[in-house]
Structure formats: C-alpha cells, structure tokens
Amino acid sequence: MDLSLSDDQAAVLGALESLAKPFAAVPANFHGFALISETLDRALVEGGFLDVAYESDLGAVTAALVVAQLARLPYAAEVAASALVRPLLGAELPRPICLADANAPHRPVRFLAPGASVIVLDLDRVSGFTASAQDVQATETLFGYPVALLVPRADRETMLRRFDVSPAAVRAAWRVALAAEIAGLLGAAIDATVLYVTDRKQFGRPIGSFQAVRHRLAEASVRATATRWLALQAADSGDAGDAALAAQYAQEAAAGVVYDLHQFVGAMGVTLEHPLHLWTYRLKALLSELGGRSAHAVDAAALIWGG
C-alpha cells in the first residue's frame, strides 16, 4: 500500500499542469454549453498524455490520474476513453474515441463526429468502426460535451470490426474512466462553488459561513475525494467488481452534488456567465453512462457476491 504519487506520476501530472495552464480560464466571450479546444487536444496528443497507460511503469493508475486532472479544466476534452479504454483494444485507432453502449442506442454519444472511432460495447462482444458523415446525426443538447446521435443503419454489421478483448474488461475500464472523470469534474465544480460562497455575502456575511451550506459542501467534498480514491484503486486492481463499485459511487455522488452546487451558486449559476455549468452539465451527461448507477450496482452485486 503506497498512496502517494510515484516520482514518475508526479512528473507526468506536473507537466500536465503546465500544459493545461492556458486552458484554466473560460474565454471571456464564451457563453455556450460545451467548451472545446483543438489546441488543447493536439497538445495532449503530442505530449503523450493520452498514452501513459501503454507505459508499464505508469499504467492505468497514472492514466486515471491524468483523466481526473484534465476533467478539472472548464474545457471538455476526449481523454477518458483514449487514456483508459483504447489501450485494451490493441489497435491504432483514429481519435476521438467514442464509447457507445449497444444497449442504449438512443443515448447521445460524446465527441461523435465524422472520422471518430466508435467503439460499441455489447454484452458478448466489442466492435468498432470509423464514423462517416452518414453515421452521425447532429443534435443540440444541454450537455457540457459535444455530442451527436448514432444513426441506426441496416448495413452497420458489415462495417464492424471485432476487437479481440473481453467485453467485461472494456466495461471495467470504461467504468474506471467514468469514475475518474467524475472525480475531476466534482473537484473543480466544488472549487468554483467554494470561491463563490466565500465571496458572495447575504445577511451581512459570506453565504459559505452558514452551516446549512458548509455541511453540504463538506459532504460534497468527502464524496469527491472518495470518488477519486475508488477510481484509482479500481484502476490499480483491474477488478471488475471494484470498477462497478467505483462507477456506482461516482454517479451517485454526482447526482447529489450537482443539485447542491447549483443551490449554492443560486441565480448566478443559472447564467452562462458563471462557469459552474461547464462541470455540472458534463456531470449530467455522465449520469446515464453504461445504464446509470443502478445498473452498476446490479453488476457490482453479482461481481462481489456471485450471481
């Protein structure tokens, strides 16, 4: 048991911090739902940050650390799938990597665009294809990611490429990626809220000094911290039960905390001028991933205590 960063991990995260610095603030004129940057994406690829899991001395834990740290930015970047799921597929795949759940065909797919690699997870197989314009139906959503709908096609089966990997392993990695991303989003959203309630005064004092606010924010902080540990531990063990628990815990935490943070930032958080939504509306997108918290819980029960 050693829960501190290794020197290599500290170096990776340190380099990532420098790279991410120009992206820490929201551009003044941006008033949208999903903030993206090709410059950031390119820098992440060129810096090798999405490939850390391929390095045996860094591995999945470092990849999960990278995912969590990048999720703290107000920018939505396709990191989690590339860093944690792609290494299992044993193939050079064009990015972005879009994870699609075969059991949820109506669900908007994050980062889906022509040219993206779509990985379809089914109960008995993992397959994929490179999306063309005919596969992608643009859609406007409230989510904090660029998303699109996957067009149902009768001839898709002929285009699918099978990956020689167990669906359970991909599901577990996806769950770890999900939990790590939620951990980072929660952390940054809580930080933004703490700033606001420290500054904002009502009844002559900062609203963050009222116990009704302090206690709920403290609970949010505990849940965010625990989410991060669960994600990292599951990344380390590679155990499917750990991954299901991490995903379940993460989504449950996200569901409760998003509500609370919006309560505390109040009307200011309803505007597109305050950045809170850039984290919370990404969290909302993640709540339904892989069937949502109850689906993870059902799986976790079978994995932990036997079906």
Binding site: R223, A226, T227, W229, L230, Q233, D242, A244, L245, A246, Q248, Y249, E252, S294, H296, A297, V298, A300, A301, A302, I304, W305
Partner: peptide, 14 residues
C-alpha cells in the same frame, strides 16, 4: 436488494 447492497459496499470501500 443487490442495488442497496452494492451502494453500501461502495460506501464501505470509500
């Protein structure tokens, strides 16, 4: 029942 058990297990692990 399994859902509630897993929820509790997640909190224990946390």
């Amino acid at each position: 029942v399994g859902v509630q058990a897993s929820r509790a297990a997640g909190l224990c692990q946390a």
